[in-house]
Design a protein around this nucleic acid. Structure first.
Lengths: 158, 158
DNA sequence: CTTGAAAAAGCGTTAGC
DNA sequence: GCTAACGCTTTTTCAAG
């Protein structure tokens, strides 16, 4: 596991947990493969311990939840302050995700939600106040996530 | 629920499920609030039925899993072909998420993973072949997600 | 809409292969 | 490293307030 190599059982686990991380039991996964539920449970624990599984999150439709505005901000942070700014950006109410980017000047991407444009303006102001320079902002219309099986598997799972 | 208004119980549920959607039981959530585990379970089902909860996903560290390259592609699609292109982009091996953006020319964002630059090049070629124009590509260094309580709650949960 | 209780299913642990 | 079996927790189902 140290080099990150996964076998078919591991990939099936990751695939099934991507599809439904809450209602998929170890037994469900084991049924499809030729292993026991115990083995699946052990593998999951190992994947968690190895850091390959970072966590499990609910996928929320913010629009349906009453936060109709879902926005993505492209920001620039001085390299030497970036870590600090990322941490503080996460504390701004409305911010739901922060990504550090490797290349280019625009090196921080922030996702945020709001009830109206006042919320978004406030978020923008708070982020600017921290020292982040906002270079672009786009509203997200819709979002699709595809469970991923890895390159070794057949193209069209399901 | 029709207008998307959530009460404190709902928000607590969403918050806890954002933190750990797999190991947080209804009883865990109920313990902190003044309701029974059954109520929490009913609420969760209602949130799922209302589409506010879209699903539950495992958060994978692709780098640790042997796919060290995590990239984000900014693309442009003709408006009238966009829906179709988004659907087909999701089938390109390596693509893990597609977002439709509301504003501007660059109206599709794609996340993809790969083992090496050959993988990324192939993904780029396949997407271009579909008819998507790739205008920018950045490597993601790191990614942080913050559980979100909504604007009505205190600023620093936990 | 919420509760509580019984039956079913799932999990963690341990022991053995 | 995989499996089976134990006891415990959780979910499911359902009748009722």
């Amino acid at each position: 596991m140290k080099d990150g190599n996964l076998d078919d059982v591991d990939r099936e686990i990751l695939y099934r947990l991507q599809r439904d991380a809450r209602h998929t039991s170890s037994g469900d996964i084991a049924a499809g493969m030729d292993v026991s539920a115990s083995t699946v449970r052990n593998r999951i624990q190992r994947l968690e311990a190895a850091g390959i599984i970072r966590g499990y999150h609910v996928d929320i439709d913010y629009e349906a939840a009453g936060y109709p505005l879902y926005t993505k901000l492209v920001c620039t942070a001085p390299v030497d302050e970036r870590e600090e700014l990322v941490r503080r950006a996460l504390d701004v109410p409305g911010v739901v995700a922060v990504r550090e980017v490797m290349t280019g000047d625009e090196n921080v991407y922030i996702n945020a939600v709001g009830r109206d444009h006042d919320d978004l303006n406030r978020i923008g102001r708070e982020l600017s106040g921290l020292g982040l320079r906002i270079t672009d902002e786009v509203l997200i219309r819709d979002e699709y996530v595809r469970p991923y099986r890895g390159f070794h598997d057949r193209e069209r799972p399901d």
